[in-house]
Design a protein around this nucleic acid. Structure first.
Lengths: 204, 204, 204, 204
DNA sequence: TATGAATGAGGGTTCATTCAT
DNA sequence: GATGAATGAACCCTCATTCAT
């Protein structure tokens, strides 16, 4: 009887995490072969799941990609915030740089993420940030940024514009340095990037 | 008889520049339908050329895209330089901003280019710039930049890094403002972009 | 408490006539999207019923279609007979034309029925008629027809053959005129149709 | 050298009749399994042709069906006319009946045709007739019919309506008798059908 | 009875690429 | 060089049906 119960619960678990299996395997494949070269067949085969099952959880390939990008971006950001809270960094600028640096380190340690989100590094931040941005949710990177700017009375004319400029700058230059290693690697580049960010914050 | 000759010579010319016909039509199609949705069949049909002929001139779809991106980017840059030469701008910074502004205006006037190079705005600059970069050719945007920095003794530690940072910044933020119109349009954004560039030039 | 009871009884009733809910919603969908384009998922979703439940009541999609066709055809016929009984039409021919005309009017007023039975207008008559035909049930269109022919001693060699000829003629020509409106509309066509039927009745 | 030439011509022939191979095999499959149950894979496999080749010659499954229906209907009609010309039938009615009878015999001898055009027997006549009908082409069944009616001054009010009524009557009743054998077989039915047609021609 | 997650064969269609001419 | 018919793998996606619960 117990065995039966165990089997049942196993099945339940299988059901529950079928979506996770798909997400996980898609993540690995996108990281390995790239998004475009990964077919839905690849994903379901690797996940050991029927093709039709994919469409129970995702509308199409774009859909699973977007869910993954959001998930991974959120993770990057959460990790950074968690570690930020252990630090004592009184100045906003330093906190911002800390968070950005943390995310870069994370990406560097898990380069699959970069491969799989292809050239849409910023998309990663966007997709999660934008929804928060439009929904006035008081968390997320933009909230942190706005709060910091305001509490320190930084002389920034348009907070949104400055925020997205920095986001784009980080996204595009890091992608170049990390993936194409051009014209230098990310470690060498970081000091310059941080100086640039600080400069942009002080345009006045 | 002459008419026949003329027709013949037209045909000859047509034959001669089959490659150009392919490039032109691919450009239009990429601009209209996007790169992904344009098939090689579309291109050859529109160009009035046999399918096999495509493979005489291009390795594959990527190849024709790259050639187009290079071509169009070079055009953008050449136009800017041509107009720059009519101006008297003693300061390097002003010349740089002039060139960037010129390119932005050009892109704004020909939005097809943006559609077709999709998210690879910077790729445009790169593909032509990189080859020049690596070949020490004394023309191109980078040469202009380097020359300007040096002649004005700007306190820039690493010219390459600064150059590509500005390139990426312009590429990613302009793409966002021009295509996604977020968080503002390009006209509103430009003053802030130019201030950012000037700030990056003076990091020290 | 009573409210709860009422709700419960409603649920019970809902459960009880799940088959009816499926039939009703299938009818609407077949009428809207057509039989081929309607999936069983569509039906069960609209009916608010689980997919498996469908297979408790119907063997497959064909099955529910056939049941619907029978149901609707029977309705058409019953309506006609009900109204016929209010009239005094001593001659059999006139009664037959009255019934046919009534059905045509009905179909014209509810074009969904035509859409959903697609090209099987005659199938409608058949499915209900055939069962009665084979079961010697003394009601139905055929019984009416036979009785009329015999009581008026019409010189018809083979009643069955004549009956089904008329049925087919009505079915195919009305479908053409009603759906394809070719070569004329049903109103224009009807006088000719009725004359044809009378002619067939008097072949001798 | 000759061998090479022969090979070449063989290839040419292969090319030329690839479409025919597809049509022939589709015809057989539609006749065997029915239109709905026949997949394009079935067709190309049986024809020994690649799947993509199908789409060089046909837009989709409907397209090949329509081409087949037209072809076969035209054949039926042509055969009838060819044999009609060997006969001396002064009266129009007799010629019409002869043609219809000939087509019925043909269909009876090749029942695949019936299966494959499913319930669209009349569609067969239509698709070829309609185009002729609308294009005023002086051949085809309708032209024959109209000419006959006019030359014999038959008292028919609306030739089109009468024509399509007869077409529908023949189509639907023959389909029933031939396929469903109900309520009788086609041989038994024919005399009655012909009498009905004659009756319709003389409605006045 | 009732459920609905899971299935997976099969659907139609596209398209980059080849190769005999 | 130029052609374009032919290929066939691969694509995404649908859906009737099953079955453990």
């Amino acid at each position: 009887m117990e065995t039966l119960k165990e089997i049942k619960s196993k099945i339940e678990m299988n059901k529950a995490d079928k979506k996770h299996r798909l997400l996980d395997n898609a993540f690995q494949l996108f990281g390995t072969k790239g998004f475009g070269k990964t077919s839905i067949s690849d994903i379901v085969n690797k996940a050991g799941v029927a093709k039709g099952t994919f469409y129970l959880y995702f509308k199409n390939k774009e859909d699973i990609r977007n869910q993954l990008v959001s998930e991974k971006s959120l993770e990057l950001f959460s990790n950074a915030i968690t570690d930020l809270e252990k630090k004592v960094l009184p100045r906003f600028e330093d906190r911002l740089i800390f968070v950005i640096n943390h995310m870069i380190e994370d990406l560097n340690a898990h380069p699959e993420i970069l491969t799989f989100i292809d050239k849409d590094l910023s998309l990663g931040f966007y997709s999660s940030e934008l929804s928060k941005f439009f929904s006035d949710e008081p968390s997320g990177l933009y909230a942190l940024f706005k709060e910091g700017v305001e509490s320190e009375h930084l002389p920034i004319e348009n907070i949104e514009i400055t925020f997205f400029t920095i986001l784009d700058l980080v996204g595009s230059t890091c992608y170049r340095c990390m993936v194409q290693k051009f014209p230098t690697d990310i470690e060498t580049y970081k000091p310059f990037l941080f100086k640039s960010i600080r400069a942009i914050l002080h345009i006045g």
